[in-house]
Design a protein around this nucleic acid. Structure first.
Lengths: 204, 204, 204, 204
DNA sequence: TATGAATGAGCCTTCATTCAT
DNA sequence: CATGAATGAAGGCTCATTCAT
């Protein structure tokens, strides 16, 4: 990858195209799998010739990194803001989960790729940055649960299991959630919270 | 793959080695990923020369198939038996989930591989058998929830979400559950049921 | 094989190199045999790295197809033109055989490969196109013999045997005919016709 | 290949089986091609397990050698006898060609294999024995033509071409001659001689 | 910037052959 | 004699990446 252009006008176009490339890559990776996708597939999907891709990225693996990074980074930022804003634990949790599910839905393909390649990300030392972001997010989530439990707002049979379950639910979401489905994103997020918090329907 | 030997004595050894190969493959696939694992990796992991593997399998993909099949087939059989045995819905559900989690724990690597390669299995028509087994199992699970709801044993805010959550939780299990961990397998299974059913701890 | 370039300048070079590759392949195949020739052999013979060959072809088998096709297609076209032009049956036959022998001599290696791999071409359904061309050419030849016999220009003891013999003679030609040999191409062609037509030398 | 058994009874059975193996090999080679036939194919065709084949032969290539040898050796012996017996040149030629065509028909698969692998046999020094037999046979044939020409029994426009044509015709025979076809073996042989000798049908 | 030809390592698989049983 | 498991060297092909144009 040559140095990106410095003149602002060119830089803008460059950044736009690079973002487009990452988007396309996420879509194709999500469908065929990262390993099963060839640079030629991306070349075809973007309309850029094989060599042209390398003006925007260093290589195939960097695409995977960018996908993971653009998925986790903003989520972590938003989550920190929500937690920092404070409030009643349940409100914080619900706000956080809602933002999370929205994020997952908006970056559905990114999330699918991230989950698919989890075995690499979790093991390879070169992926520690991404891994750390995931861990920080999960830590944040746990903090909220701990705080709620401490304040008596939440009563978990087992907080660890509750956290793992919440992670599982939301991570699994992109496999079935589609825009315009039976449940709205907010409903899904609230539903998850209800389940975790043991909120039973009123008629019971 | 040549036809398996017919003489019983040889057949037994053949089957044993083949099973061993599938086991090793599951372990290596789980660690490095199916695509990232070369037949040479398996050759090294099994101690069998590259060509020797093909006495037991038709190709790399068949290993993936066998892994999925040996994971789902017995689970489905067991699940059907549990449901057929009948009983109070909650008892049935708990028995079922417990068996499921035990199965997942025993076939941890198989499950990891199955989850990893889900994008292939769900899309490729050649994998319809495996996909069908997964669907049948999920259908069975849903039937139990439906029955429990009908009998008034369960009260879900949203049964669909409950099912998806349960699937997510158990499918996520092999990522963190280790034998000898804080929670026993049974505790985990019951914990999952509690969460789904909205069982809150005695507010002591 | 990527799509061939569309820009005319590039396309010309591409076509030239591809033709070169087919030529080299025909030569090497003719010498070592199609099956006994590895892509590495072709790589070495062309000076192109192993992978580079696949810019021009889909695979080894396509080379064999192109060789057969480039051998038969133009021959058939030329033969049709000669027959269509009409004239005295003997003149037509002699013109046809002469063109045929010239063609065979010019594409000596192609012909050798075609003959060598006849057992595949005649049996495999995927080779029906090539097979059809061969049959059409032979049919054309037979038509000429039939017409000549009908007009009383030819008198065969057995026309079927005459046709088979002519085919045998010409097909066998590349095994021994060399440019600059004792007999000119035209002499060979005429000699074949003499033999088939029972023309005996003036009993001087 | 271990040493063949010496006890006569065993030796007979051994020889019979070995001959059977060569026959089967010739058939399979003729159909699929020598190179395209795997030892496993032969194993299946003979009913002998892979390793068992090596009790009778040294390797795959020896099978090819035996096929060629068993084809050419007896033909050469018979041809020599016919020529040695003497007689009118035309009678000798006709007897010889008839024996030849009969031989070719009886060893149709052997001949097909021999023709298919001609490129190896003609080039590789290891095949000089087989090549020599072929050359001796052709020499014998030429001698007959020379003698006939000298005696004024034959009048060739070009004896060399006549020889090559005859070779071509007979060598091509296994590609189309089937037992029970329109022409008897003898008729075919005589037809070839008529063509070479310029014998025109009586009605002409 | 973009193209597309070219590289070369690596992958999955086949196969002739050997050898313990 | 026969079996069938095992070997290991190719073989055809793919693919991430480079680079002259």
């Amino acid at each position: 990858m040559p140095a990106p252009p410095t003149r602002p006008a060119l830089r803008a176009r460059y950044d736009r195209r690079r973002q487009e490339l990452v988007d396309v890559a996420a879509t194709v990776f999500a469908e065929r799998g990262y390993q099963a996708t060839s640079m030629d597939d991306l070349s075809e999907a973007t309309g850029l010739a094989a060599g042209g891709l390398y003006h925007y990225i260093d290589g195939k693996e960097q695409l995977l990194f960018l996908i993971c990074d653009e998925l986790l980074q903003p989520l972590l930022v938003e989550a920190r803001a929500i937690v920092a804003a404070g409030g009643h634990p349940e409100a914080v949790l619900r706000t956080l989960v809602r933002a999370w599910v929205v994020h997952v839905e908006l970056h559905r393909t990114y999330m699918l790729v991230f989950q698919q390649e989890r075995h690499v990300i979790e093991r390879d030392p070169r992926w520690s940055t991404v891994r750390d972001h995931r861990k920080q997010f999960e830590r944040l989530l746990d903090d909220v649960l701990v705080a709620g439990e401490a304040e008596g707002a939440f009563a978990f049979a087992d907080r660890g299991l509750a956290l793992l379950s919440l992670l599982a639910m939301v991570n699994y979401t992109p496999q079935w959630l589609r825009a315009g489905g039976r449940l709205s994103t907010a409903a899904v997020a609230d539903g998850f919270c209800d389940i975790i918090l043991g909120v039973t329907p009123p008629t019971a």
